[in-house]
Amino acid sequence: MARAATTLDPFNAVAEPKRRQVLEALATGEMAVSDIVGRLGWPQPMVSKHLGVLKEVGLVTSRREGRQRLYSVNGEQLKTIHDWARMFEKFWSHQLLRIKEQAERRAKDLSV
């Protein structure tokens, strides 16, 4: 079965690690392409390509300011991914609780 195009689905778009890095850079606030290039150290065409995909699926928005185009994260679209991932939080919480209990037992055993 053929994979869905990354330009149709936010989940497929963020499956690409480089696009997640672009989103992480934008999490600090609105940025121009040149600022993202500087932060990530990638060639400008690569950054623009990934921004294009993220924009097409609605994960980033852009606006013009003079000759620059400024990009920012579209939190509303990311919420869909967050809500889906939240279903699995019980597994993370369970693991953290287990690790905490083991550490407390070991600390108790060492103090005896």
Rank of each mutant, 00 (worst) to 15 (best):
G75F: 03
L26H: 06
G29S: 00
E16Y: 00
K108Q: 11
Y71F: 10
V33F: 01
R98L: 01
D9L: 04
E89M: 14
E89N: 13
V14M: 04
T7K: 08
A4D: 13
Q21L: 12
D83S: 05
K18Q: 01
E76K: 14
S62W: 12
L40E: 01
S111H: 06
Q95W: 05
D9C: 07
R67D: 10
S48R: 09
T7V: 07
M87N: 09
M1G: 14
R39K: 14
R3E: 08
S62V: 04
A4R: 15
E16M: 02
L23E: 01
E56W: 00
M46L: 13
R105T: 03
T6V: 05
D83I: 00
R39M: 04
W84P: 04
Q95S: 08
F11W: 12
S62G: 13
T61S: 07
G29D: 06
R39H: 05
L96W: 02
H94D: 05
G41K: 00
L97E: 13
A85L: 12
T61L: 10
I99Q: 09
V14Q: 12
V53L: 03
G29I: 03
G38V: 02
V60H: 09
H82F: 11
A15Y: 02
P10R: 15
T61H: 09
T6D: 07
N74E: 15
S111A: 10
R39E: 09
